[in-house]
Amino acid sequence: MIDQSQYNIGVPAEDLALYTPGGYHPVRINDRFRHGRYEILNKLGFGSFSTVWLARDHQNHCNVSIKVVVANKSDAQHGELEILDHIKANGDPQHPGRKHIMQLMESFHHDGPNGRHLCVVSELLGPKTTTVAEKCQNHRLGSRLARRVSQQLLLAVDYLHSCGVAHGDIHMGNVLFRLSETERSSLERIEELNTPLQGNVTRKDGASLDKGMPDYLVEPIEYYAKNKEHLDEIQLVDFGESFFVASPPKSIYTPMSLHPPELVFRRTLSKVIDIWNLGSTTYELVIGRTPFEADFDDRELIPQFQKVVGGVPVEWVLDAINDGVLRERPKNFSAEGFLSLEEEIKRSYSDDFDRSTLELDEEGLQTLGRYLRKTLVVDPAHRATTKDLLRDAWVSATGV
């Protein structure tokens, strides 16, 4: 196991310890993939199981995104690729939500010192909604844009569910703005980006690097649209936690504060976890923070569920105690300061801000509250479906 503390690393980047057999591929700027077709230009990001790169497609003369998966997750049955292939083959091309789902352009394998890596090529997208929100007033999207994004996200989920797929990991970090065709194709836009920020990797004891380790890491950049006011269309990305509705997993990995109640109570999962996270993400898009907060243990969320939306079944708590999920009935200290959903929306959206800067009036907040009440339902059996939500005034009043 690599001890990262024994190395000098010049930039913030992925965990160096994962550059081992079965782990990351050491990608370098200007590397060529797929017989020279794709040229690596910069890094877009990284996760526990992949690094993501901005590349030039010299065959189609456009810029693309390439995800390079760790070798031990790159076998032919890799779940994300299977899901994307299924969506591409079985989805209705006329469904309005299709354009809001990341589209697989192609995939291939690349051999390197740490193994054989699955490479997934997709459309180059713009910034995450989280990044844009951080640069906005009050650190949240304007209400009109937030509403439009939440509407498109609902269409994306409806499309996935029509394909028999649940996303499993909906949050603002997985909702990205699309770029215009010009933005995606232009080499001039690439030249406007900063030179890739590279940091040399060296051992503190002066010894040589092990085989399969990079001699430098690259700090991820954010690829912005040139005209930010044109950021009005999104795509839902990252299908690493997605599953077929007919065969749900026992657990998923998603940000703790967004864990749906059935995951917290270790109950059976289903596609309606997407409905809960659709509601949580819509709340965050408009309000600027998640509706629930957990720092160390997702069981901290249970009293918050009860206080904000109510409806935690007593039998769930008793079953959790009997099964060892809970040792005792949850204490209410983690819900201190929380109000009911409608009161939280009003307080968090408007009470601490200059009302002249707010786009949603009281009626708009009530419309939002009614929509969220249909999504943030503790018992998944009573949660709304995407078809129910598509008829809701939050969506239907303004169109998409």
Rank of each mutant, 00 (worst) to 15 (best):
F243N: 00
F243T: 00
F243M: 02
F243S: 03
F243A: 03
F243P: 03
F244I: 00
F244S: 01
V245D: 13
V245Q: 04
V245G: 00
V245F: 05
A246C: 10
A246I: 02
S247N: 11
S247L: 08
S247V: 08
P248Q: 08
P248K: 01
P248E: 04
P248R: 03
P248F: 05
P248D: 14
P248S: 02
P249M: 13
P249R: 06
K250L: 13
K250E: 09
I252F: 00
I252K: 00
Y253G: 01
Y253N: 05
Y253C: 09
Y253R: 07
T254Q: 11
T254N: 02
P255C: 03
M256E: 08
M256H: 07
M256A: 05
S257C: 11
L258Q: 11
L258E: 01
L258P: 00
H259T: 12
P260T: 07
P260F: 07
P260M: 05
P261Y: 07
P261R: 01
P261D: 08
E262P: 09
L263Y: 03
V264K: 02
F265Y: 13
F265T: 07
F265K: 12
R266I: 06
R266N: 11
R266A: 09
R267T: 05
R267N: 10
T268A: 14
T268E: 14
T268I: 12
T268Y: 13
T268W: 03
L269K: 06
L269S: 12
L269C: 04
L269G: 10
L269V: 11
S270N: 15
S270M: 01
S270L: 01
S270H: 07
S270E: 08
K271P: 01
V272H: 09
V272P: 03
I273V: 15
I273E: 06
D274S: 14
D274V: 11
D274Q: 02
I275H: 10
W276G: 13
W276N: 14
W276H: 12
N277Q: 15
N277V: 10
N277F: 06
L278V: 09
L278D: 04
L278Q: 05
L278K: 10
L278E: 06
G279H: 08
G279M: 03
S280I: 00
S280V: 12
S280T: 15
S280H: 05
T281I: 10
T281A: 12
T281H: 10
T281L: 08
T282E: 08
T282N: 03
Y283C: 04
Y283E: 09
Y283G: 06
Y283V: 00
E284C: 06
E284V: 00
E284Q: 12
E284H: 04
L285Y: 03
V286R: 02
V286E: 05
V286L: 15
V286G: 02
I287K: 11
G288M: 05
R289Q: 15
R289G: 01
R289V: 12
R289A: 13
R289M: 14
R289H: 15
T290P: 05
T290D: 09
T290H: 08
T290R: 15
P291Q: 13
P291S: 11
P291C: 12
F292Q: 04
E293Q: 14
